[in-house]
Design a protein around this nucleic acid. Sequence first.
DNA 1: ACCTGAACACCGTTCAAGT
DNA 2: ACCTGAACACCGTTCAAGT
Lengths: 214, 214
Amino acid sequence: MARPRKPLLSRERIVTAALALVDAEGLQAVSTRRLAAELGVSGPSLYNHFPTKDEILDAVADTVVAEVDLSMFDAGRDGPDHWRPALLAWARSYRAALTAHPHIVPLLAQGPGRRPTGLRMADAVFGAMVRAGWPPAHATRVGALMRYFVAGSALGSFARGFVDDPRAYDPAAYPHLGQAHLLAERQQQVDEGAFETGLTALLDGLELQFQRLS
Amino acid sequence: MARPRKPLLSRERIVTAALALVDAEGLQAVSTRRLAAELGVSGPSLYNHFPTKDEILDAVADTVVAEVDLSMFDAGRDGPDHWRPALLAWARSYRAALTAHPHIVPLLAQGPGRRPTGLRMADAVFGAMVRAGWPPAHATRVGALMRYFVAGSALGSFARGFVDDPRAYDPAAYPHLGQAHLLAERQQQVDEGAFETGLTALLDGLELQFQRLS
DNA sequence: ACCTGAACACCGTTCAAGT
DNA sequence: ACCTGAACACCGTTCAAGT
């Protein structure tokens, strides 16, 4: 079989298979040969659809960010009281999209870059903040700092860092972390709690700044 | 030359060289062969000092986190008014350590894990918050959410994401980002501003919560 | 246009051999 | 104990060859 009359691959099929592989086995499991095998083709076939492996992973990251709900930034329900609930809903949707695919979060490191959905997201947040009354320079910062917090919460899940093995912790070395190994069990609660606590603090603090501006 | 009478390598030399290579050329530049060449030895020599390449990079990450100042959490100057300036100073030192070595930030994804300095840091923050009057469950969250924000700010530097090429941005597609390409130039200012704005908001918000608790 | 196998330079890691 | 070269299985990518 050289060229089939109907293409075996498409960019979409490749991205879908790559995301499934990343979710199931992590980033390191994605090699061009392995991914191609998963799709029933040979390694080099991928290069008919993407110039490099990195661009495949870029497209995967874009797919994940595309899952983020941005409808709360739609023009129409603007007003000076809408920016807070909009940021809140956006942050939760953003975090949900990332924690659904935790293995690609480190890949988001490059920032929005040339990825279209990342740019669309930045544009939506910025536009809504300006319409709500934030000065443009502040609107840029608000979008950025919210992104920092959400990405950080999805990236370095604090609790996941503690392995589930009491022997890893010398109580003499870390006097306050005696029960740290328990954190692995309650991972999700701790993460969720820290995220919600931080989100509330962030929005409370931004509200103070917003009031000072007007 | 088989075995020299004085060892050519040490864990410390390896880690130092690896960090220099990461800083200069990024994570992908670090291969065992390349790193060994940089140290004047052959590839497999590294395995006399580290069991895997991943553990070398773990040690590199640990080195970077070790640069974070924790002295503001020392017992003695506790009191209910000290936790805020302590968190502020720590966050700035933490961010400075990470932005000095931006290429290893995605590596911190695994969280503190078994890395001793990450655990020491978590322990110091937690202990100081509890001594300042935060209930333990809240102290855990405060340490985690601050880490989220700092790691996120170092990871996905918002501005770095915008490439310095006006042609990458179709003004029709991103109506609010017409000047986005300019962001690449002002990268540091935007990042710094967003970080400081977010940090103030976060601490203002935490102060509100702290008052509510007492 | 879109797939294939062969090939290239390069990986991380193992291991027997040297001192 | 600590280094070496050879070797293994595996990479990302290129390319000529097939239809």
